[in-house]
Amino acid sequence: MRLLGWTAPGGSTELVVAHGPADAAQRLLVLPAWFDEANKTRHFTQAVMRHLADAGVASVLPDLPGCNESLAPFESQSMATWRAAAQSSAEQLGATHVLAMRAAVAIAPSLPGWAYAPVAGKSVLRGLLRARVLSAREAGRQETSEALLASGLANGLDLAGYRLGAQMVADLADGELAPSTFTIIAQNEIGGAGLWLRAEPDHDAAQAETLAALVAGRLST
């Protein structure tokens, strides 16, 4: 594993985790899942990249602006800034293929590749709103998804510990699963239940191995 940097469109320097041979002819850009799902699949995503490296496949995982070690404000991000960032990182890091996890399919650059268990932005937003409504209810406060959405579209919103800007809320609310050229890898192809479903971050070594094998097998053919 190597740590590299890349320059995001806003000028910020962002971290990249790279696995596998540095001089490979093909390089896979890995775009991680978002928000609470990012935490729940972080270990899994790294494990997939390690297995890919074992199979001789180079992969890179850039921090998107606002995420992980990034100093860019999360609240300023939107699907457009992340899409531009994904495109720019692909060019700077010499990516030839992409593996988009979950909602990240919406920002993936036009390279050949795979969408793992793709999910629409609107479904992601629905889950985040519900988590907030239910936790407010447990705390004795009454909030509704509808009112939260209206306020989020106007002023941004705190969801799952992230301060989403108004544009990001709007982008998610409109986020459909558009037809794409990516090969979809459904959860049932890798066996077991998706790790983002778990209440606490967990890992499943067999799933990581299977996903890496699927991608590596198709890359080499």
């Binding site: 479904s123 629905r126 889950g127 519900r130 988590a131 409504v133 239910l134 936790s135 447990e138 509704t144 998804s145 509808e146 983002w196 479903l197 778990r198 209440a199 606490e200």
Partner: peptide, 24 residues
């Protein structure tokens, strides 16, 4: 196993797999 975080995943997954929408 069914804590409040799991309730959120459970309901969202039920909506996705059964193509229904559950109101607050």
């Amino acid at each position: 196993e069914l804590d409040s975080m799991a309730v959120v995943s459970l309901l969202t997954e039920i909506e996705d797999r059964l193509d229904i929408v559950l109101e607050d």
